[in-house]
Simulated scan of single mutants.
Amino acid sequence: MTVNVLFSARRELWPIYEPLLSRGLSDAGLDFALGTELEPAEVDYVVYAPNGGLRDFSPLTRLRAVLSLWAGVENIADNETLTVPLARMVDHGLTQGMTEWVVGHVLRYHLGMDAHINAAEGEWNPVAPPLAADRSVSILGLGVLGEAAARALAALNFRVTGWSRSRKDIPGVTCLHGPEGLRRALSDAEIVVLLLPNTAATENTLNPETLALLPKGARIINPGRGQLIDDDALLVALDEGQVGHATLDVFRTEPLPPEHPYWSHPNVTVTPHIASETRPATAAQVICENIRRGEAGKPFLHLVDRSLGY
């Protein structure tokens, strides 16, 4: 029986993904039809991105699973027309890219690189940074991306604390959970990295109350979701010196509007949502493996708990 796979993502990605998916499905020994326009009632799987235009899944009466190309699923998890399993993207290319970005910016703060780059001509200030073992970093969110970043920083001897909603155990990382765990994770954090999903429970995780828990002058790095931070509260904390600097890669509105105060704030670094993105070569492998598993009657990988939103 032919397996029909609908590709619903930006059209310009189709020429990139088509040969990768075709090769992967062929290697899996499947008879398949793959395209951007298929008869809805005959579609078995959807390779999905929110910007692909598909919103109503009800005509896809034979649908077995939706396989997202994105790690975040907040734009689809509450779709009432989606009644089949939803898998989010977890692949080693995306994970490695995020780990490299997070480690790079933690080291930038740790080593004081901004001060060196912005030093006035002739300025000579030979102040060495502490060793990593004397620097505390807290990772909020210990999913696949957060755990990978925490492990990498711990391998560099940073004092790493990780916080998650549920209990985790990662060698070399102090793992905390729950409301009291969040307070502890923030109270000792010289550098905070946000890698939580965007859900009703995580919105404004950093707010006036939690920002006040940080050691004065703490640094914030957010490659997770813009909704994790109360923007007004962060701007106040920056102006008052409670937060020393923030590096922000994600925002509530993207692209970040030109008039937004983050652009001109002297203690904010804006990066254009580049911390990591799905790599087609590795993402196609994950998609094809999930289709192979579905056709073999095996459990899908990386399924979303839609009650939690991730």
Rank of each mutant, 00 (worst) to 15 (best):
L235P: 13
F158P: 01
E259F: 05
L94S: 10
G244H: 04
L69C: 09
V243D: 10
R165Y: 04
I76K: 02
N198G: 08
H116P: 00
A281D: 15
H245G: 07
F32Q: 06
E74Y: 10
A296T: 07
T282R: 12
V90H: 09
R151N: 05
L235Q: 12
Y310I: 13
N118K: 14
V102I: 13
V192R: 01
V173Y: 03
V243M: 06
P126R: 10
E254L: 09
A283F: 09
V90Q: 07
M89N: 15
A148Y: 01
A148W: 01
I76R: 03
D56T: 03
A65V: 05
R151E: 10
E12Q: 14
T210E: 04
K298R: 15
G294E: 09
L211M: 10
E42P: 00
T2N: 09
V46E: 00
L34V: 11
A281C: 00
I139M: 07
G178C: 02
Q285L: 15
V43H: 07
V43C: 07
L214Q: 08
T81W: 01
L238C: 12
L111H: 12
P85F: 08
T202P: 02
G241N: 06
A71P: 00
L60W: 04
T247Q: 09
P171W: 01
V46F: 01
L60A: 08
L38K: 05
P126L: 11
Q242S: 15
K216I: 14
E254Y: 08
L20H: 08
N51Q: 11
L21D: 08
N75P: 00
N79S: 10
H245C: 12
V243A: 11
G35T: 09
V304A: 08
V304M: 05
F7M: 15
R252F: 06
L142R: 07
G178Y: 01
Y48A: 04
V286F: 08
S166H: 09
R252L: 14
V46Y: 02
V236Q: 14
A150C: 11
H92S: 14
H105P: 07
R225W: 08
L206R: 06
E37D: 15
L248D: 10
S136H: 13
V160I: 09
I16D: 12
D239R: 11
E147R: 12
A283E: 10
A152M: 05
L235A: 13
H116S: 13
P280H: 09
R11C: 07
A284E: 06
V73G: 02
L206V: 11
A41R: 13
L67Q: 13
E12C: 10
N207P: 02
R159F: 00
L145A: 07
D230W: 03
E277A: 14
D27L: 15
N157H: 14
Y109G: 14
V103G: 03
D114P: 00
N4P: 00
N222S: 13
V102M: 10
Y45K: 07
H245L: 09
E12W: 11
H116Q: 14
A41M: 03
L30R: 06
P272L: 08
A201H: 03
V106P: 02
P257M: 10
L182V: 05
V90I: 15
I221L: 15
